[in-house]
Simulated scan of single mutants.
Amino acid sequence: MRTIILLIFFTIASKAQNNSVVIKLEENCSLELKREVFNPKEHKIDYDGKYVIGIDGAPLFGSDGEIPKYKLSKAILKIGDKTYNLQIDNMYNPWLGDDVNKRFFRIIHGSPNDHILKGQFSDGAGSYAAEWLIEWNSSIRDILTKDEIIIGSYFEK
């Protein structure tokens, strides 16, 4: 009986969603993303009628009016021997299922110390994009948008 219970437990655990992914952007460049379950009891949820429009007084990115299931908890960009902790506030439901579509992330190098990282996030419904400016030893998110024209422009060749 104990063996059956352990077998059921490991089967369920193996079906659990992957909450951490590493995206290899280039030979010497990677992006690690982590998400955690969103607990609405720990936040002030803003509604417009029955639809969620904000969390803790900030706009909601990553949901089509529902309470998010996940929140992006960490984004770490590594370029060579440098590591950048990227700004991730207000970013919810960053991907659906176990894996991220790696084609939705792109890094552009301006010089050895000047880079732009572009990424698209989606749970299938609430699509949005972010852009980070990386210079020397620091980074800042300069765009967080739901605008479809901007999102489309990220991946035009």
Rank of each mutant, 00 (worst) to 15 (best):
M1L: 07
R2H: 11
I4H: 14
L6K: 11
L6I: 05
L7H: 13
L7T: 14
L7D: 14
I8H: 02
I12H: 00
S14G: 13
K15E: 09
Q17D: 10
N18Y: 03
S20F: 00
V22N: 07
I23M: 04
K24S: 04
E27Q: 12
C29N: 01
E32F: 00
E32H: 07
L33D: 07
K34C: 03
F38Y: 06
F38G: 04
P40E: 05
Y51H: 14
V52L: 08
I53S: 10
A58E: 15
P59L: 05
L60Q: 00
F61H: 13
G62C: 10
P68V: 10
Y70M: 12
K71R: 05
L72C: 07
K74L: 05
A75W: 13
L77G: 01
L77S: 00
K78H: 14
I79M: 11
G80M: 14
G80S: 09
D81M: 15
T83E: 15
I88G: 05
I88L: 05
P94C: 12
N101T: 08
N101V: 11
F105R: 08
F105T: 08
H109G: 10
S111P: 02
N113I: 05
D114R: 15
S122C: 14
D123L: 14
G124D: 01
A125G: 08
G126I: 13
A130N: 09
A130S: 12
W132I: 04
S138P: 06
S139T: 01
S139C: 00
I140L: 13
L144Y: 06
T145Y: 00
D147C: 07
I149C: 09
Y154I: 10
E156H: 12
K157R: 04
